[in-house]
């Protein structure tokens, strides 16, 4: 029984916004299955009373003053844009409202 099915991999690709071809799915699904079996080892460490660590260092309260700093110019902001119009980023039609 694989730890992840081809269908699940296809679902992940949709969530991750990657248009995988069938051939790629065939290739990637068994590899992911292997990797998931490897990483699944973490569950062997019984660690109910262990707190999780999300940051390497125990820093807290790093904040900045509420002051303005210079912005990019609109030309700089748009310099990498694949398409621009009216000083805005031009993007293909959006299907759904957020």
């Amino acid at each position: 029984m694989p730890s992840i099915t081809r269908e699940e991999v296809a679902h992940l690709a949709r969530l991750a916004r990657i248009e995988l071809s069938d051939a790629e799915l065939d290739h990637l699904a068994p590899q992911l299955d292997q990797i998931i079996a490897l990483v699944g080892q973490v569950s062997q460490v019984a660690a109910d009373d262990i707190p999780p660590t999300s940051h390497a260092l125990p820093l807290t309260n790093v904040m900045r003053e509420d002051v303005n700093v210079p912005c990019l110019t609109p030309e700089q902001a748009l310099s990498g844009a694949p398409a621009a119009e009216e000083q805005r980023f031009r993007v293909p039609r959006i299907l759904e409202e957020d």
Binding site: A77, E85, E86, Q87, R88, F89, R90, V91, P92, R93, I94
Partner: peptide, 9 residues
Amino acid sequence: GASHSLVDY
């Protein structure tokens, strides 16, 4: 029905 969108950040 829009053909494209323009984004202001």
